[in-house]
């Protein structure tokens, strides 16, 4: 197979597109999406975890209060470090857009903006 002309994933790993004059708005909206995805991912896991635990512990401990057990949990140092790494990865994931498009000219304008004519200076000032 021939090598790709561009690196694998050039479309999604490059600067992408911007749609707003102020690229910060692009980055904020993208961060909001990533944040919501992360919130759902963790909420979904917690729901699955509680279901699995309840099913397992029902056999040996009757009907355990999973919420109380979670509150009483004391993490080890190793566990805390592992959780810190996960937390840092979450921060990177949510806020990656700001590093990806740090400046107004760091991504090409999207399709809906290609044909906008420059406004006269007087109009810009108003």
């Amino acid at each position: 197979m021939k090598q790709a002309q561009a690196p694998l994933g050039a479309e999604i790993e490059g600067p992408g597109r911007r749609y707003f004059d102020d690229v910060v708005i692009d980055n904020l909206l993208e961060a909001m999406l990533e944040l919501t995805a992360a919130v759902w991912t963790h909420r979904d896991r917690a729901m699955v975890l509680e279901q699995v635990l309840s099913r397992l512990l029902a056999e040996s401990h009757g009907a355990p209060d999973i919420a109380r057990l979670l509150e009483q949990h004391r993490p080890t140092a190793e566990e805390q470090e592992a959780r810190r790494l996960e937390r840092d990865a979450l921060v990177s994931q949510v806020f990656r857009s700001f590093a990806r498009r740090p400046a107004a000219d760091s991504a090409p304008l999207g399709a809906g903006r290609r044909y906008q004519e420059p406004r006269p200076r007087a109009e810009q000032a108003s």
Binding site: G9, Y19, F20, D26, L29, L33, G110, R113, Y115, Q116
Partner: peptide, 26 residues
């Protein structure tokens, strides 16, 4: 496109369409 540029919803929609597609493939 010049007419649609007046609607803020258009740019938000474009941003969301592009971003969610990138998230999906990544």
């Amino acid at each position: 496109q010049r007419s649609l540029d007046a609607l803020p919803l258009v740019r938000v929609w474009q941003r969301f369409m592009r971003s969610h597609q990138e998230m999906m493939w990544r």
